[in-house]
Nucleic acid binder design. Structure first.
Length: 573
RNA sequence: GGUCCCGUAGCUCAACUGGAUAGAGCAACGCACUUCUAAUGCGUAGGUUGCAGGUUCGAGUCCUGCCGGGAUCGCCA
């Protein structure tokens, strides 16, 4: 199975070949002028450029080659050499039927290799804040996309649990004489900023922290014991946040997990002549002659003997290659770390840490700014905790349910469940619909609004369809996949046929917003269909059965895409 | 200063990787609920795609130079 555009690309491609032209010129896409045609092919103009011929003549020849085909209702040359394509109603109906009887809704096959996705990246001893939102939900969405495609997709939370902050906290506890006492998450959240501030202000204090970090990494038993407590307390907090968001991980690993791999890895890099001593530190130079920019060396060991996150990132690659032999490792991490990943990836390649066939991809995302365009801060000037954002969303959704007077026939448990799903849909969709790479504006009001291009709008359309199908079933109405394609139905049917194209693009570029955009178009197209056509009251029984079938297909499609986005649909709202 | 990213409607964002008349949402204005859920639909208005060149049948998209914003440039993550 595939999309109509891909199917047509095949037909046009072989027509190009029969005319002695490259098949890839036959690529067909959904027309960007729906008033003129359903699909278009622009290859004749590219062919004309190469062959120095008239593009319209080439287009005419292609059309003649295709004239026998039954699928086409209309094929014509337009403008400088566009080939405009319309399919027959029968062809569209048959394709819609094929999608409806396919479990994968038309999606083709993908490889089944292992792909590791590294996202979330919460830090020990720090509360999760809104800044973790993007990394978590983009990563989780991509994991779902790769998983659905057929890959063995594994999400790793990759906690920050082995760096300088650990030493800062431990040394702070030591100074206070409370090392070894029980700690709560609240204690940690208070102590860490104080310790961090003290280290910034005083170089001697910072030295203590560095020494403590090195001692911890050296495996000091007492330190490890306290550190393990940090982990236990912090992970409980993280899980609460991730559960609320519906973000899943297959591995709860952290930087510390790979500590035992570091020494052998560095030795290996030394033997290859890549890792060198430099002013007390151990570094790998990664600059190359072809560089247009200066790339600093990657530091494996600092002068104080402690490792840095580049070292643990590298050792994590060693671990992942050994354990899973992935074909891709994708890092969903802030775009500002692109230089860091460039360094790590280069060392991984130079040192043969990663096989040639394994792609290392930094799928970076932009900075989160406030409505003033500057890095986001709450009114009080601090960061907003993730749990506070979620709670705000749920409160707003509850209030909305009250306004709509939906309290009467829905019990408190279901109301709570609806509010939760609406809030998460709102938050996730507001974030995921933005292009991953660009900076974006974090606007709490917009994020928790339920009208227009929002998550709740998508839920609403899906819920309306579900409700309608329930009514049809209650009246024992027949639903058919023997589609009758009329004007109103055709727009929706053609749109549903595009799914594999959008999925493919989202997968290829690691861009969830493509799926958001497509899901929104489906919801919008359905909503328009819904208000233009009466479905249950349609008198033509065949048409009614066809429309019910189309509704059913639409809601399956919506549910699938929302699921890929990590958004759940309530039964009613 | 070097390098990289960004600049599209009043605001927030798209534009299928070079295609035809640049599309959505919000905000504004005007319609449509005795009819399958109005968290909705339909319509109006809103643009010299930062500026100036270039490449070509064709540029928001590619190349050059400016202007403006951001990030980053070895011992934090």
């Amino acid at each position: 199975m595939t999309s109509l555009a891909k199917f047509l690309s095949g037909l046009l491609g072989s027509a190009f070949e029969q005319n002695g032209l490259p098949a890839d010129l036959g690529v067909v896409r959904v027309s960007d002028r729906p008033d003129l045609s359903q699909f278009q092919c622009n290859g004749a103009m590219a062919a004309a450029k190469q062959a120095k011929k008239n593009p319209r003549d080439i287009a005419m020849k292609i059309i003649e080659t295709l004239s026998e085909k039954q699928e086409f209702k209309r094929l014509e040359v337009a403008g400088p050499g566009f080939i405009n394509i319309d399919l027959t109603e029968d062809c569209i109906a048959a394709h819609t039927q094929a999608i409806a009887s396919d479990d994968r809704l038309g999606l083709g096959a993908y490889p089944s290799d292992t792909v590791i996705l590294d996202y979330g990246g919460p830090n020990i001893a720090k509360p999760m804040h809104v800044g973790h939102l993007r990394a978590s939900i983009i990563g989780d969405c991509l994991r779902r996309v790769y998983d659905y495609a057929g890959y063995n997709a594994l999400g790793d939370v990759h906690m920050g649990d082995w760096g300088t902050p650990m030493g800062q906290i431990i040394s702070e506890l030591e100074l206070r004489g409370t090392l070894g006492q029980n700690l709560t998450m609240e204690d940690l959240e208070k102590i860490y900023p104080e310790a961090s501030k003290a280290c910034k202000a005083d170089e001697k204090r910072a030295d203590m922290a560095r020494a403590a970090t090195a001692k911890l990494q050296d495996g000091d038993a007492d330190y490890i014991k306290v550190w393990q407590q940090f982990i236990d307390v912090s992970v409980a907090g993280m899980k609460a946040n991730f559960d609320a968001l519906g973000v899943h991980f297959d591995m709860w690993k952290g930087e510390a997990c790979v500590h035992h791999l570091i020494a052998p890895m560095v030795n290996d890099l030394r033997e290859q002549g890549l890792a060198l001593d430099d002013d007390g530190a151990v570094v790998v130079s990664v600059a190359s002659e072809a560089d247009t920019k200066e790339i600093p060396p990657l530091i494996l060991y600092k002068r104080d003997g402690a490792v840095m996150y580049g070292t643990t990132d590298l050792a994590t690659i060693v671990d992942r290659v050994q354990e899973y032999n992935p074909s891709k490792i994708i890092y969903i991490v802030d775009q500002r770390q692109s230089l860091h990943f460039e360094q790590v990836f280069r060392v991984a390649r130079m040192g043969g840490i990663v096989p040639n066939g394994t792609d290392l991809i930094h799928a970076g995302f932009g900075t989160m700014n406030g409505t003033d365009g500057k890095p986001f801060k709450t009114r009080a000037g601090g960061v907003m905790k993730l749990e506070d954002l979620i709670a705000t969303g749920i409160d707003k959704a509850q209030a909305r349910l009250d306004d709509a007077n939906l309290a009467d026939d829905i019990g408190p448990d279901e109301r709570q469940d609806i509010a939760q799903k609406v809030a998460i849909a709102a938050i996730k969709f507001a974030d995921l619909q933005n292009n991953r790479i660009a900076d974006y504006v974090f606007d709490l009001d917009r994020m928790t609004s339920f009208e227009g291009k929002t998550g709740p709008y998508l839920l609403y359309q899906a819920v309306r369809i579900k409700s309608l199908l329930k009514k049809a079933a209650a009246q024992s109405m027949i639903m058919s996949n023997n589609f009758k394609i009329q004007d109103e139905d055709q727009v929706l049917a053609l749109l549903l046929a595009e799914f594999p194209d959008h999925f493919d693009l989202a997968l290829r570029n690691n861009t969830p917003h493509v799926l958001c955009d497509y899901a929104y178009k489906i919801a919008q197209s359905f909503s328009s269909f819904y208000s233009n056509c009466h479905i249950l009251s349609e008198r033509d029984e065949d048409l009614r059965a066809s429309r019910l079938g189309l509704c059913s297909l639409t809601v399956r499609q919506l549910e699938l895409i929302l699921n890929l986005l990590g958004i759940q649909i309530p039964e009613r709202m």
